[in-house]
Simulated assay, not measured.
Amino acid sequence: MVYQRIPHEDLAKSALAKLTDVASAALGSTIIEVTDEFFAAATNMINPAPPIHAPGKFVSTGAWMDGWETKRHNPTYDWAIIKLGFAGSIRGFDVDTSYFTGNQAPAASVEAAFAPDGNLKDAKWVEILPKVDLPPSCHNVFVLDKETEVYTHLRVNNIPDGGIARFRAYGTVHAIFPEDKSTVLDLAFVGNGGHTVFCTNEHYTPSSNLLLPGRGQNMGDGWETKRSRIPGYSDHTVIKLGAKGHLLKAVLDTTHYKGNYPNKITLEATSTEQEVPEESAAWTSLIEPSSVGAHGLYYFDLPSTDKAFTHARFTIYPDGGAKRLRLYGIREGGKLPQLPIANPQFEKFDDEVNGNAN
């Protein structure tokens, strides 16, 4: 596989910028097998949060490190297998050795396998990133010349031993849809292939968090913008749906946003062949300016159900944050259900406070 190493500061303008970290624990990815994790667990490597530096902190095995760290003097090499939360193709990596200053893995490589049934015994492993050098305490970003085939598992090779703080695998989720196109799905959900393609502001946290599984654990895994002091200001994010379809119901979750939720929101949709809708795109209004509140769930039955859309634009006024945005509908070619569809059920939080919580 041909690749290019790029500076970390160029990641935001690279081909990886708006791709999904398919290896992230936030998507349900897990470590299912590892050769050694004596000093620090391999699961740290797929933590979506940045690594933490804690000099002077020690545990029974030695210095506490926020990453995956194996014992010294491996005569071959260590490895860890990641089961991806959703099958995906890969375009690049960040093998981060932050805070590993002399105990980092000197090199790494990555292999991949497609085993949707979970049986790796007879799986064929394909090298998708050859052996690369890893300097101490830095991001190491690699862009492949083309996207790989679709895989369900990745094997990170730690050569020969040492520490990797974080491992990111940037790519595209490949959804496995029901055969029946009339099945109601969250078409914005990352597991169904939804992803953000544009956002005006991601000062605190990225808008891609809106599409993650579950309802999150705290305010850190939603979308939050900086404060605006400009009259009439707004921020928005554009979501490419996992499949072109008819949007029937939207659910906005503001859980944990108790003093920084948006004052109002709108939702629009369009249909285009472009990854990012062109400036001349015609947008259909699905939610007119509507007030939302703190720490709850807000349901909206959507008009224009006869139209099929490829993208949605979610706007907040003037700024603030939200945890999740769900856009339920059916894929183009399916039969519309009886409307309005029932409100979906979500896991509850003990301290939900407003009447819109479900």
Rank of each mutant, 00 (worst) to 15 (best):
Asp36Lys: 06
Leu19Asn: 02
Glu37Phe: 09
Pro231Ile: 02
Glu278Gln: 10
Ala63His: 06
Gln217Arg: 14
Leu248Ala: 11
Gln104Asn: 15
Gly214Val: 00
Ala312Ser: 01
Phe314Lys: 00
Phe314Leu: 00
Glu278Ile: 03
Pro206Ala: 04
Pro318Asn: 02
Ala54Cys: 12
Val141Ile: 14
Ser280Glu: 14
Thr148Ala: 10
Ser208Gln: 15
His139Ile: 08
Ala26Ile: 11
Lys83Ile: 08
Ala250Trp: 08
Ala165Ser: 15
Leu19Ser: 05
Ser182Arg: 06
Gln274Ala: 15
Leu154Ser: 07
Asp21Phe: 06
Ile6Asp: 08
Gly320Met: 05
Met65Pro: 00
Asn260Leu: 00
Ala54Arg: 15
Gly259Asn: 09
Ala54Leu: 15
Gly62Lys: 01
Ala115Arg: 11
Pro318Met: 00
Lys83Trp: 04
Ala294Pro: 05
Asp145Met: 10
Leu84Gln: 08
Pro106Val: 04
Ile90Ser: 07
Val2Pro: 14
Glu69Cys: 01
Ala63Asp: 06
Gly102Arg: 07
Ala169Glu: 08
Ala357Ile: 02
Glu268Trp: 03
Trp223Gly: 09
Leu210Phe: 03
Ile239Phe: 08
Ala105Arg: 03
Gly242Ala: 10
Pro106Leu: 05
Thr76Arg: 10
Tyr170Asp: 11
Leu134Trp: 04
Arg324Ile: 06
Gly194Tyr: 13
Phe309Gly: 01
Lys121Met: 12
Pro231Gly: 03
Gly171Ser: 09
Phe86Tyr: 15
Leu16Glu: 05
Asn260Arg: 01
Pro178Gly: 05
Ala322Gly: 13
Ala243Thr: 07
Arg326Lys: 11
Asp306Thr: 12
Lys249Gln: 15
Ile164Lys: 07
Thr101His: 03
Gly88Tyr: 08
Tyr317Thr: 03
Thr101Pro: 00
Leu252Thr: 11
Ile52Gln: 14
Ser290Cys: 08
Leu241Val: 09
Glu202Ser: 12
Tyr204Trp: 13
Pro277Phe: 03
Arg313Trp: 00
Pro75Trp: 08
Glu149Tyr: 10
Tyr261Asp: 00
Ala40Glu: 06
Glu224His: 09
Asn157Leu: 12
Phe177Leu: 12
Asp306Ser: 14
Glu33Cys: 06
Glu111Phe: 05
Thr183Leu: 06
Ala113Arg: 05
Trp64Cys: 00
Gly171Val: 11
Glu278Thr: 12
Pro213Cys: 04
Glu278Lys: 11
Asp253Met: 03
Leu19Phe: 07
Thr272Met: 04
Thr200Leu: 09
Ala80His: 03
Phe189Tyr: 15
Phe346Ala: 04
Glu33Pro: 02
Pro213Phe: 05
